[in-house]
Amino acid sequence: MTDQPAPAPAAPDARPRGQWGLVFGRLMRKPAAIFGLAILLLFIAWALFPALFSPQDAYAQSLVRRLRPPSFLDRGVDGYLLGTDHLGRDILSRIIHGARVTLLVSFFAVLIASVVGIWAGLLAGFVGGTTDAVILRLIDMQLAFPVVLLVIALVAVLGPSVTNLIILMGLSAWPRFARIVRGSVLSVRGLEYVDAARSIGAGRSRILVHHILPNILSAIIVYASFELARMVLLEATLSFLGLGVQPPTPTWGGMINDGKNYLSISWAASLFPGIAIALIVLALNLLGDELRDALDPQLSHD
């Protein structure tokens, strides 16, 4: 970045109607964004139509050909490209099938967390006063509460199910969004254009939607991509604690957890689902970064 003459700062509320088209256009010029989008779309396709992609039945067990390495290595079995797990199931097919529940749980959990969190954060940061104090106390309560305890107790009472898992994971993450949004609101609230908007008599909700939200959107998107990754891992940790998605339904986290017991015999069973998680995290992060840059007109010149 050089000391080029700075462009005149664009007033955020002066963005044209077609700004999303513009953003998408900018995105498509970035290889990193295209790569991220491609991976995400592939995983979504796996999640929607796993049977189309799977070379094998993801649930068919065979105790005699268990813990085999990938088919291109010694002791590998033809047709089992990435090897077999501890029950002799095809790892590749289970990763493909696992995309469904893994993504479903993570996306909806983040959705719940972000909707609740953004709403609470905006309210707290913008309205201030008693509302702020009450929301802050709720946030503190939620954040300081051990998630594992919450999950064990509620799963014991409500019974384990994908829906309960999504709600619990989502509710455990809302305060992080709220804190970030509130912090950002506080830091932009004093900026000139917000003061200006207020002085010309713009209503609260108008300022909220037109002035503050666009400014914190990039922070939220970056954070959401993080939270998605965290949710994938939280599901893994919960299955480590025996509280994850019910077997035999595959999830990537659950597969790592099952595979770790056999690290000394087979590295394939835990490595490949780990790579799948790394890829989705990579894709989301690249997309988050590029989207953030594309949303910010001041950065679009280099």
Partner: peptide
């Protein structure tokens, strides 16, 4: 299949 946390299982 219903997987149970060990404490809940014993209960």
């Amino acid at each position: 299949m219903v997987v149970l946390e060990p404490g809940e299982f014993l209960r």
